Amino acid sequence: MATLTQWQILRTLTKRNQGTNEILEKLHQKGITLTLRSVQRNLGTLSGEFPIISDHKNPAGWKWSDSAELFALPTMDSTTALTLRLSEQYLAEMLPRTCVRALQPYVAHAHKLLDEISETGVGWWPRRVARISRQQHLISPTINDHVLDEVFQAVLEGKQLEVSYRSIGDESSTKRKLHPLGLVFDSEIIYLVATVWDYPDFRQFALHRISDAKKLDQPAKCNDTFCLDKYIAEGNFDFPRQQGQIRIRLLANKWLARHLEERKLAEDQIISKRSGGFLVEASVIETAQLKWWLLGLGTQVEVLEPESLRQSISTTIEGLHNIYNPKDRK
């Protein structure tokens, strides 16, 4: 039985004679690091199992014999294996379970291939890249496996969905018929965006609050105007406080100004030096997320405008002061 590396060697061969140096170069391009002697030794071994022939020159050239029948070789190369490996690590939760199960043999094959070339660039790449979150780590809520399967399949097939859902402020669940529009993965939380019954407004449902779900046979009602990317870009997952944008003006310290030069609030952001710090101006959507971010910056920033946001921040700070300094309460 040929090894994964030997399959890769066979895949470089054609019915045109190729020198071992050419074969070695093709393998290097695939991220497979072997010596010339190793390639020659493997080709010699493979010639006893497959219809490949040498021209017996020094160094030898190799090709498939003219009489060799066409058959399919495993087509996974190291780049494909790396893609599958990282997809398993970072994308598996976004795929329907049926797709994940169908991919398992290929993922297992990818692991074996990368293990064989673990000391090459492609082989060690999964150990040298990582994604982190700077948010406070919270334990992920548990999602019922049956619910997950039913919801994903309903989205995949465009079917209606009957769920038992408990809103965050409620003590018990209620039955609802949903028309799924899409799934959004926000850190550790999965949200289903859908319309309810015959109402036109778009709603968000956290999957961990669904206690039961059943995919129905009836097709979900399509909304031709709905675009999931646009829905997210409009700030609907940041808890918008009003429609449209505001022009925000902040007085920031040097560190925050440098940070916002690297990671802008908006494309039209302007930063200018001012007495006491740096003036930051940008057009943003006013959301609860924006307010939480500003409060988290503490004394590094002062909200100058709009006045409504400044007053909201001030009221929250006053409330915090009363909590932490009860003796100062009026």
Rank of each mutant, 00 (worst) to 15 (best):
Y191D: 04
V163R: 00
R203T: 06
Y165C: 07
K159I: 04
V193R: 05
A206Y: 01
N144S: 15
H146K: 14
R203C: 08
S173H: 12
I143Y: 05
D198L: 10
S173M: 01
F152P: 00
I189K: 03
A194G: 07
L181S: 06
Y199I: 01
H146S: 15
L183Y: 10
G182C: 08
I190K: 00
R176M: 11
A154G: 05
D212H: 14
P200W: 03
D201T: 09
V193Y: 03
A206I: 06
D186C: 09
R203V: 02
T174A: 14
W197M: 11
Y165A: 08
Y165K: 08
T195D: 08
L181I: 02
A206R: 14
G158H: 03
L207M: 10
T142N: 07
F152I: 00
Q204I: 00
N144M: 05
V163Y: 03
Y165E: 06
K159F: 00
A194M: 05
Y199V: 01
F202P: 02
E150D: 09
W197C: 06
R176Y: 15
D145N: 10
K177H: 09
H208D: 14
A194C: 07
D186R: 13
A194P: 04
Y199K: 13
S172D: 11
L138W: 11
V196H: 05
V193S: 07
L207Y: 03
Y199T: 08
Q204Y: 03
P141V: 10
V155I: 14
G158R: 02
L156W: 13
E150V: 07
D170F: 03
Q160A: 08
P180W: 04
D145H: 10
P180V: 05
Q204S: 12
H179D: 15
E150S: 11
Q204W: 01
V184E: 06
S173D: 13
H137Y: 13
L207G: 01
I143G: 06
V184I: 15
K177D: 00
Y165W: 07
L161M: 04
L207E: 01
Y165F: 13
Y199F: 12
W197Y: 13
H179N: 15
S211P: 04
Q204R: 13
I190R: 04
E188M: 08
V163H: 01
D170C: 04
R203H: 13
V151Q: 05
A154R: 05
A206C: 09
V163I: 15
I210H: 01
Q153F: 06
L156N: 10
H208Q: 06
V155P: 07
E150Q: 15
R176D: 06
R209Y: 08
L178N: 08
K177F: 09
S187F: 05
R203G: 02
I210G: 01
D170R: 11
D186A: 09
V147I: 08
